[in-house]
């Protein structure tokens, strides 16, 4: 299939992009890496009148430290998650997740901002913003604001972004010496959207868990924190018994949808297996 005809505008500032969107009376789409939008256009699932290219907006680029956080520009590409030393050092969970996002050709173009804005529930990065307790920096017609990842993902492909709003950056708390992380996913082929995936950030004193954020993807309409399992682990040691307890409460945290190939019970089973393996790894990292 071929896309319907559309107009194209290349913005070089945030204001230009926002104005163009408003002028098109919101019958417009920002395009970043295009790795999700272009297929949607080609399949005629979306047919906006105007595409606003945001990839030439300098302000959306770059990775730098800002106080206690790492500011990761919205245009940071998936491949840069692998190559950028600041990310490897201060946001190692993103570095660990990146090789699982699609394939090199797609990682060369796809952007962090685009992935978070799209909020595909099977995507790695949106779920990792939850595990990282990240903040999404947004620019829109009514000014700038920041939204906690916990408040950002609302429903299937629905986020706190209002029409015409742009993600400018994502702020991630700097990784600290007393923290541990783990990431993995189960997929039939490397690079596919996972059957189930999970990222964990934990803060520990010795081998006692002081704080833990466990975020799953491919388990429902949004990336999902499993607070029941988190609570089970708070203040505890990551031993076999505690891990089994966390696996045991997962059922209350997750309600996987039915799909023709992966029944809910199977997804839940896989989530338990994956959680057990990741917590085991975290425990060994003590």
């Amino acid at each position: 299939m071929k896309a319907r005809a559309f107009s194209y505008f290349r913005a070089t500032t945030i204001d230009q992009a926002l104005e163009a969107h408003a002028r098109a009376r919101d019958d417009a789409r920002f395009i970043a890496g295009g790795q999700s939008l272009v297929p949607a256009l080609s399949l005629r699932l979306q047919a906006p009148r105007l595409l606003i290219d945001i990839t030439h907006i300098e302000e959306l680029r770059g990775v730098r430290r800002e106080g206690g956080t790492l500011r990761i520009g919205a245009l940071t590409r998936h491949c840069e998650m692998l190559s950028e030393p600041l990310i490897a050092e201060f946001a190692p969970l993103l570095h660990a997740a990146a090789p699982f996002v699609a394939h090199p050709a797609i990682r060369n173009r796809g952007t962090f901002g685009g992935s978070v804005a799209l909020a595909d529930p099977a995507s790695e990065f949106p779920a990792m913003t939850l595990a990282l307790d990240a903040e999404i920096e947004i620019a829109g017609p009514s000014g700038r604001r920041r939204v906690k990842a916990d408040d950002f993902f609302i429903d299937l492909f629905e986020t706190a972004l209002q029409p015409g709003e742009l993600i400018t950056a994502i702020h991630v708390p700097l990784f600290k010496a007393d923290q541990r992380f783990a990431f993995d996913e189960l997929a039939r082929r490397r690079g596919d959207y996972a059957l189930v995936g999970c990222g964990i950030m934990a803060t520990c004193t010795g081998d006692r868990v002081d704080d833990i954020r466990i975020s799953f993807f491919s388990v429902g309409n949004t990336p999902t924190r499993v607070r029941g399992a988190e609570n089970t682990l708070l203040g505890a040691r990551l031993d076999a018994e505690r891990i089994a307890a966390a696996q045991g409460v997962l059922e209350g945290d997750l309600a996987p949808p039915d799909s023709d190939e992966v029944p809910p019970a199977m997804r839940l089973h896989l989530a338990r297996v994956l959680l057990g393996r990741l917590l085991g790894r975290l425990g060994e990292g003590a």
Binding site: L186, R188, L195, E261, P263, A265, M266, H269, L270
Partner: peptide
């Protein structure tokens, strides 16, 4: 041979 079939054969589903 899908994961679902293997898990079913193993009676884990």
């Amino acid at each position: 041979i899908t994961p679902a079939k293997v898990l079913k054969a193993l009676k884990r589903l």
